[in-house]
């Protein structure tokens, strides 16, 4: 299925720095994003690649500036969003104000409406608290 409105599909957004501690090859990230787009019937637009510098979101800002012309954005993972909650909320609002959608390919989650924000935020907040959980929230089984 291809979008029928005047907007030009969904822009992918992939990382150059680790996501939740894992450095994923960009080719693999793109496979995940394209597979998600295909399954969800979304028109995929070539991914923007975020810079490697910590806390840098210049490519994401560029994609968000495009939203008037896009149906939405497909993040490789919602854990690529800024750690700062107010900055995330501004992103959600910008997406909603542009009648667009924000997809997270790895977590298969989508934000289309105000009510969807809590699902994104719950996953992000739980992950942020996980290091304080039992065993740091991770059961190590492999010694590298």
């Amino acid at each position: 299925m291809v979008s029928t409105n005047s907007k030009a599909g969904h822009r992918g957004y992939i990382a150059s720095r680790p996501v939740r501690g894992v450095q994923m090859p960009q080719r693999v990230q793109n496979l995940v994003v394209r597979d998600y787009a295909s399954r969800a019937g979304l028109e995929y637009r070539l991914s923007a690649v975020e810079y490697a510098m910590p806390a840098c979101y210049m490519m994401l800002e560029a994609v968000l500036a495009e939203l008037e012309q896009l149906d939405g954005v497909i993040l490789f993972s919602l854990y690529m969003l800024p750690r700062n909650p107010s900055r995330r909320k501004a992103i959600y609002q910008h997406v909603l104000d542009n009648d667009a959608s924000l997809h997270s390919a790895l977590e298969q989650t989508v934000l289309r409406y105000e009510a969807d924000v809590s699902r994104f935020e719950e996953l992000i907040l739980l992950d942020a608290w996980m290091p304080k959980a039992h065993l740091g929230g991770y059961w190590h089984k492999t010694r590298i």
Partner: peptide
């Protein structure tokens, strides 16, 4: 359990929270 240790199948991509309690939601925020 939501806060027990995960291995490679992680919260978000493999597991999803299904019964998060209000005290947890409030505490996290």
């Amino acid at each position: 359990s939501l806060f027990s240790p995960y291995a490679e199948k992680r919260l978000g991509d493999y597991f999803v929270p299904i019964t998060t309690r209000p005290a947890t939601r409030l505490g996290m925020s």
